[in-house]
Nucleic acid binder design. Structure first.
Lengths: 252, 252
DNA sequence: GATGCTATTGAGTGTGCGACCAATAAGCAA
DNA sequence: TTGCTTATTGGTCGCACACTCAATAGCATC
């Protein structure tokens, strides 16, 4: 009996296989970093041979870019849903900041740092990063615009307000890989403060919001518990080698 | 006669060799990225064999960390000198923001993104990043504190103000590898705006400052010093031409 | 049950990386 | 000049990576 290795081939439709490759790549990207999205690593996750990944993604760079896009899109939808049937703009914005402060947000911050750095060397990824930044701007701009229309927010330029908020969120998230324990309260609160200022809200308006039950549970994500198959975060040593600027010389 | 390759060994003192290794590594880190700081790459720059780099840095990770530290320290000194004999705190702060906006700052932003990401996997580098962040906080805090003492700035917590400014600078710099051409003016100006708000300065106080010639030329580099304008009336004595701090805008 | 399409494998290529170590020679001191 | 210390070399090893391609086998169809 083949105890350890799986001998039997499992043949899937190209669509299904491709989907599971992308899904796995996105998960690895989010939890362990884009450098860990390698042909071997993803193949191992799916118990297939690396050549198969190559078959679906002839250029590994495309898989990395796709992994980022999928992961970032999923996170954006979880943090700032496009459809907001369960509350007011103020409530959804308050929810966004509440989630942004949590530790779960560190993975997303790390992913963005990762992608922004890696896009220095990888043009395909760079385009995706720009695309996702635009999507974030749009999503938040829409929320703000709706809030203005409803009379909850006040600003002349919803987009400028949105970008300013996101710049602060980025600035705070930049330290996701470092220690942030001794930050003054004013700093921890910067994103909220910026939003309150730019949207004409009083201090505390976004932190004292009471959220309806539907907005408390994280959306899109799997349930609160995922019993089995939790990858051990401790032993993920990251990319084995520095690796990765495969040819940084031809920066073109 | 050796045509292409250098055959003759050049034997240097350990101190000199080590210094030039670190210097080269810092330059490569700043211009091409920390991933390019490899034994082979640095050895090639210095026309020596990779084993020699290993001899001075038995662990390559230490060299990468050292390269970052040296590069970051050098840039910090250039942007925010510890000794400020040529102007007021307001002038040095204005100079800092003027330099932060320039394209030369992109290299530094890239380096920081690079280091913050890589420190996810490399504990030695992570410590250095924390160290350099602290140094930046301290440097800017000192500047602000001096400004408060001189009556140029007004804030209850110089350090919190400094960190908030740096968070915004980080947030803006996060996009150093992406396109930033269509940013609203309010966003481009965010760092300055934050400083003016947190330090009790009127809008424009930090952008209308006239800098003495000594502060125009980048420090450390021997640049052609501005020939004219050496007779700046408001020299190093006090607040340049901005009058007194105005009321904090609205946050209070 | 046989057939054919093609998803999947296995094997191999070449690159770059860090780490290791015995042999070598540069340059100082005797 | 000779000798000695040690900075420096040259070579090797093992590893991880992307990429290529002929051979194989799963499985839907007949």
């Amino acid at each position: 009996m083949p105890s350890s290795v799986q001998r039997k081939r499992i043949r899937k439709t190209p669509e299904a296989r491709r989907a599971e490759i992308v899904e796995t790549a996105a998960r690895v990207a989010l939890t362990e970093g884009l450098e860990c999205v390698t042909l071997r690593r993803i193949a191992e996750e799916l118990a297939v041979r690396p050549g198969l990944i190559s078959h679906y993604f002839p250029s590994a760079e495309d898989l990395v870019a796709e992994a980022f896009s999928v992961a970032a899109t999923g996170e954006l939808d979880a943090l700032l849903p496009a459809d907001r049937p369960h509350g007011s703009p103020t409530q959804y914005l308050a929810r966004y900041f509440a989630l942004s402060g949590g530790e779960a947000y560190d993975d997303i911050s790390r992913l963005w740092i990762n992608a922004r750095h890696l896009s220095r060397y990888r043009p395909v990824l760079r385009d995706r990063v720009a695309e996702q930044e635009l999507a974030s701007d749009d999503r938040l701009s829409d929320l703000i615009r709706e809030g203005v229309e409803r009379g909850e927010f006040r600003t002349d330029d919803p987009r400028a307000a949105a970008i300013q908020i996101l710049v602060v969120v980025d600035g705070l998230g930049a330290h996701a890989n470092t220690d942030r324990s001794d930050r003054p309260e004013a700093v921890t609160r910067m994103a909220v403060t910026t939003a309150e200022r730019e949207l004409g809200l009083r201090y505390g308006a976004l932190t004292e919001v009471r959220l309806p039950a539907e907005l408390v549970a994280p959306t899109g994500q799997a349930g609160p518990t995922d019993p089995a198959e939790s990858t051990d975060p401790a032993d993920s040593t990251g990319p084995a080698q520095l690796a990765e600027p495969t040819e940084p010389t031809n920066s073109a």
